[in-house]
Design a protein around this nucleic acid. Structure first.
Length: 420
RNA sequence: GGACAGGUGGCUGAGUGGUCAAAAGCAGCAGACUGUAAAUCUGCCGGCCCUUGCGGCCUACGGAGGUUCGAACCCUCCCCUGUCCA
C-alpha cells in the first residue's frame, strides 16, 4: 500500500487529524525503520459495558492494526479517580485492583469482537501515574499553565456560568497527557470531546523531549434519541453484548435521519454506497423502513453473525407486523399461591418502578395479556382495570406486554404446602 | 478574612405563611395515528394502601433547630456554590 492509500484508509471517517502531514511523515519514517507506530486510546475503567458508540473508535484502532501498527488499549484506572471533567465531578472512590482487573477482562471480552487480540497491548495508567512522587507531580504541573488549562471548553464554560471547578479536575488533562509521554505514543485516538486532552499530550511530549503525537478525533455517535451522545447513563444505547432481538429492535426505533448517521459510522459501506441508498430512499424506490432493516441486520451481524441477524429480523417482523410472539421470548418465573393484583406482578418483574406507576399505566391502556383462543390464534386483551387480579389457579403462564418494548412470558409457579 | 448573591422534583426554572406533591418548559413513559420513523394530538409523570375515589396516609423544596393552629416561604445556627474585595 502506498503512503497515500494508507492515509486515505486511516483518515476515513475521522473528524479531525492533527496533523495529516505529520501522520504522513511518521508513517514513512516508521516504514523506513521497520518500526510499527504506537497508537494509543484511553478508556474509562468504570464502564466496561461497551455500546455502539465505542465501536466507532474501536474500528479506527483496528484500521491501524490492519496496517501492522501496535495498538495500546489503555485503561485509565488512575485517571478514573479524577473523572473526566465533563460534568461536576468529585474525587471518585478508588477501585480495588480486583475490580480493575475484572473490568479489564470484561473489556477484553467485548473489545476483541472488533480488535485483533494479538495485536493489542492492554495497559493501565496507574502503572506509571501511581508511581509518581509528590515531586514528580509538581514537576509535571510546572510544565503547564493555568491559562492554558482553562482554555478547555468545560472549564471556561463552567467558569463563565459561575459553576464550581475543583482543583483536582485540572489534573485530568495533565495526567492523560503524561500517559502519552510514558507510552511514547505516536498517535492518540479519541472522541472529539477528547481533543483538548489529546492536545495536552502533544504539548507535554515536547516538554519531555519527545516528538509530539499525532491526534485523531472520531465523531461522537448520537444515541437512539438522535440528540444526545450515546451513553449508558442516558439509556439511549445499544450494548454490543445485547441479544440480537434487542439490538435489532432498538435500531429499528431510531429516526430516519439518524439512520444515515449510523450507516456512516457503524457500517463498512463506503460513502458512495450510502449516498446511493439514500438516493434510492429519497426517490421512493426503497422504503425507509427497508433501509433501516438492512442497517439493523448489518449491525447485528457484526456481533452475532448473519444467521442471528436474519432470525432477529424475522422475529421483529413477526412481532410488529404480524403481531405474533418472538421466538426467544423472555420468560420470568414467579411464585404465587394466592391471587395477586396484576399491577404487583408487573412491578415485581421490573416492568414498572412502583405499584402506583403500574396502576397508572394500566389505566392508560398500556398493559396487554396474550392468550390463544380455541382456534389457536393469538389474542391480545387490554387490561385497563388497575385492580385486575391474577389468579394462579386460572393461569399457569401468561404473556404480558406493556407499551411497545416490554414483553415477557410469566410462568406462575405454586409452592407445595409447607414449602415456604 | 469581609461584602453581596444563591441552594426547589432527572434538568431548566416559578413560587416568599394556608387554595403546594409544588407553575411552566425540557426529558421520560403511555395512548391515538404510523413504518416500534418523523410530525401532530391526548394522558401520565414522589411513594404506600385500599372499597381505584377529583379517597386515605407517608415522604419532599441544602441540613438541624425554632416561631405559628399551619412553613418551600418567617427566625437562628450550620453546610455548600458563585461574584467582588483582601
Amino acid at each position: 500500500m502506498t503512503t497515500d492509500e494508507q492515509l486515505a484508509y486511516l483518515t476515513k471517517g475521522v473528524e479531525e487529524t492533527i496533523r495529516v502531514e505529520e501522520l504522513r511523515a511518521r508513517l514513512e519514517s516508521a516504514a523506513a525503520a521497520r518500526r510499527p507506530l504506537r497508537v494509543k486510546a484511553g478508556f474509562d475503567p468504570t464502564a466496561p459495558d461497551l455500546h455502539l458508540g465505542h465501536t466507532v473508535l474501536l474500528r479506527k484502532m483496528k484500521h491501524f492494526q490492519d496496517l501492522g501498527h501496535t495498538v495500546i488499549f489503555l485503561i485509565g484506572d488512575f485517571t478514573g479517580l479524577i473523572g473526566d471533567p465533563s460534568g461536576r465531578s468529585v474525587i471518585r472512590k478508588p477501585m480495588t485492583p480486583e475490580e480493575v482487573a475484572a473490568n479489564a477482562e470484561t473489556y477484553k471480552r467485548q473489545v476483541f469482537k472488533i480488535l485483533n487480540a494479538e495485536k493489542t497491548v492492554v495497559d493501565f495508567n496507574s502503572r506509571w501515574l501511581g508511581a509518581l512522587t509528590g515531586r514528580d507531580w509538581i514537576a509535571l504541573c510546572s510544565r503547564y499553565t493555568l491559562a492554558r488549562l482553562i482554555e478547555r471548553d468545560d472549564f471556561s464554560k463552567r467558569l463563565k456560568e459561575q459553576k464550581p471547578i475543583a482543583v483536582h479536575e485540572l489534573l485530568y488533562p495533565l495526567s492523560q497527557g503524561y500517559d502519552s509521554v510514558a507510552l511514547e505514543a505516536d498517535v492518540e485516538l479519541g472522541g472529539t470531546d477528547q481533543k483538548f486532552n489529546l492536545l495536552v499530550g502533544r504539548d507535554l511530549q515536547q516538554e519531555y523531549g519527545q516528538p509530539a503525537q499525532i491526534i485523531m478525533t472520531m465523531p461522537i455517535l448520537e444515541g437512539l434519541d438522535g440528540v444526545q451522545k450515546m451513553s449508558k447513563s442516558l439509556g439511549n444505547y445499544v450494548g454490543i453484548s445485547e441479544p440480537p432481538a434487542s439490538m435489532f429492535g432498538k435500531l429499528m426505533s431510531i429516526s430516519d435521519t439518524l439512520m444515515w448517521r449510523y450507516y456512516e459510522l457503524l457500517t463498512d459501506l463506503s460513502r458512495g454506497e450510502i449516498a446511493g441508498l439514500k438516493h434510492s430512499v429519497d426517490s421512493a424506490t426503497t422504503h425507509p423502513m427497508e433501509a433501516k432493516k438492512a442497517l439493523a441486520r448489518r449491525i447485528v451481524a457484526d456481533f452475532h453473525g448473519p444467521e442471528a441477524a436474519q432470525q432477529a429480523q424475522k422475529d421483529f417482523e413477526a412481532q410488529f407486523r404480524d403481531n405474533a410472539l418472538p421466538h426467544d421470548l423472555d420468560t420470568r418465573s414467579i411464585i404465587l399461591n394466592e391471587p395477586l393484583k396484576l399491577s404487583r406482578v408487573l412491578t415485581g418483574i421490573g416492568f414498572f418502578e412502583s405499584n402506583a406507576e403500574a396502576q397508572r399505566k394500566m389505566k392508560e391502556g398500556a398493559v396487554h395479556l396474550a392468550d390463544f383462543d380455541a382456534a389457536g390464534e393469538l389474542q391480545w386483551t387490554r387490561i385497563t382495570d388497575p385492580t385486575w387480579v391474577l389468579d394462579p389457579s386460572d393461569h399457569s403462564e401468561v404473556v404480558v406486554r406493556a407499551g411497545s418494548r416490554r414483553l415477557v412470558k410469566v410462568k406462575v409457579n405454586r409452592t407445595t404446602a409447607g414449602d415456604e
